[in-house]
Amino acid sequence: MEIAENAALVVVDVQEGFEEEAHWGPRNNPDADRNIAELIDAWQASGRPVVFVRHDSPKPDSPLRPGYPGNDFKAYVEERRGKGSGPELFLTKTVNSAFYGTPDLGAWLSEGGVRQIVVAGIQTNMCAETTARMGGNLGYEVFFALDATHTFDGVGPWGWALTADELARATAVSLHSGGFAKVVTSAELVAAAGK
């Protein structure tokens, strides 16, 4: 795996509100937070750009709404902000894709000549997947760090239900088979970043 010297790590919505199991239901991948932290550390140690994305939900009952403690980044993310030697961006959004945030992610990546992005964060099949898909559509080479994401059990139309693990697998298959992103592990990315 070849990771460019200016490949950007996009850390999506790693916020305290996702700890509220009563709101979200059962989650998968308890190792996600450790893997996200290791990716941030590797990117910052190598001087590569890191993007910290926060979801400011417009829904009044959302654990991610501004002004509510759940809107804050998880502590391990907040304590890493500003610690790298490379470029860093903080952006907020109200929709799924980090490419529809403020400030403009695409413009910031273009200014840095970035053509390769790594997506990690929460939720696997929602904002992380949407950001990866849009990145692929916009012509970026996208790596999706599946084990540095997590999601929650979901219910769809007609009472169809999928576990968080099933939803994560569906995301991996969709991104891979659709050519939106290369689905990889965080360990592969950390190793590549250290070369």
Results as ranks from 00 to 15, higher is better:
A98D: 02
E16P: 02
N96A: 13
V77P: 06
N71V: 09
G47P: 08
L64S: 03
P87K: 07
E20V: 12
S62A: 05
V142L: 01
L89P: 03
V95R: 13
A98R: 00
N137L: 09
V184I: 15
P66N: 00
K74Y: 10
T149W: 04
E20S: 13
R48I: 06
V183S: 09
L138R: 08
Y140W: 05
V51Y: 09
P69V: 05
G194P: 01
H23Q: 02
A172E: 09
V51W: 07
G67C: 04
T130C: 14
E38H: 14
Q15R: 02
V77W: 06
I3A: 09
P60C: 00
V12F: 03
T149F: 03
A7E: 05
S110R: 14
E38M: 14
G135Y: 05
H23V: 14
N29E: 06
N29G: 09
A98M: 04
R48S: 01
E129G: 13
S85F: 04
F73R: 11
S85R: 14
E16D: 12
A172F: 07
A128M: 10
G25M: 05
K182N: 12
F73H: 15
F143G: 04
S57T: 00
D165W: 05
A8T: 07
V183L: 11
L189A: 09
V190N: 08
L39D: 14
A75Y: 11
A170H: 13
P103A: 12
T171E: 09
G106F: 01
N35I: 10
T130D: 15
V184D: 12
M1V: 08
A4D: 15
P26Y: 02
F144V: 06
M134S: 10
G84S: 04
V119D: 05
L167V: 08
E111G: 13
A172H: 06
A187I: 11
V77K: 06
I40Y: 06
D147Y: 00
V11A: 10
V184Y: 13
V50G: 08
